[in-house]
Simulated assay, not measured.
Amino acid sequence: MEEKVIKRKEILAAFQFRHATKAFDPNKKISDEDFQLILEAARLSPSSCGYEPWKFLVIQKPELREEIRKHAWGAQGQAPTASHFVVILARTMMDVKYDSEYVRNQMINVHGFPPEVFEAIQGRYKTFQEHDLKLLESERTMLDWASKQTYIALANMMTTAALLGIDSCPMEGFDMEKIQEILTREDLLENGRLAVSVMVAFGYRANDPKRPKTRKSIQDIVQWIE
Rank of each mutant, 00 (worst) to 15 (best):
R69Q: 09
S138T: 14
I166D: 04
Q149G: 01
G123D: 05
W224D: 07
T160W: 09
W73F: 15
V110D: 03
K216T: 05
I108G: 03
G123I: 00
E3G: 13
C169H: 05
F113Q: 12
I59K: 08
R18E: 00
T21S: 02
D167A: 08
S147A: 13
Q180K: 14
E226I: 13
A23D: 04
L133N: 09
L39K: 12
A120H: 08
H71K: 10
N27W: 07
L154Y: 02
L194M: 11
E10G: 08
K216A: 13
A146G: 12
I88Y: 02
G77M: 06
K178W: 08
N207M: 11
I108E: 10
L136G: 02
L194E: 09
S100W: 05
S168L: 01
F24E: 13
N207Y: 12
Q180T: 11
A206P: 12
T81M: 12
V196Q: 02
I179Y: 06
Y125E: 13
S45V: 09
G74F: 01
S47Y: 04
D167F: 05
P114S: 07
D167W: 04
V87A: 11
G165V: 01
P46L: 09
D32G: 07
V222A: 14
Q60E: 15
Q76L: 10
S147L: 04
K9W: 04
T159R: 07
A41R: 07
A206N: 15
G74Y: 14
E119K: 15
R185T: 11
G173I: 07
E177W: 02
L194Y: 14
Q122G: 05
F202V: 10
P26I: 10
R91F: 00
V58G: 10
P114G: 12
Q106V: 03
V103M: 14
L183A: 01
M199C: 04
A82V: 02
A75S: 11
Q76N: 12
R215M: 06
M94G: 06
R91Q: 02
K61P: 01
Q60D: 15
A14G: 06
W224T: 14
P114H: 15
F24G: 14
M142L: 14
F85R: 04
K9P: 03
S168D: 02
A120Q: 13
L12R: 12
A90K: 05
A206W: 06
R124K: 13
Y125A: 07
L189A: 10
R69V: 08
P53F: 00
A41C: 09
Q36T: 03
R91L: 01
I68P: 00
G112R: 10
M158Y: 02
C49E: 10
N156E: 09
K216P: 13
A72Y: 06
C169S: 15
S45P: 07
M1C: 15
E181H: 13
N207R: 15
Y102F: 07
G123M: 04
L163W: 03
R185C: 03
G123T: 01
K134M: 07
V196N: 12
M199W: 00
I108K: 05
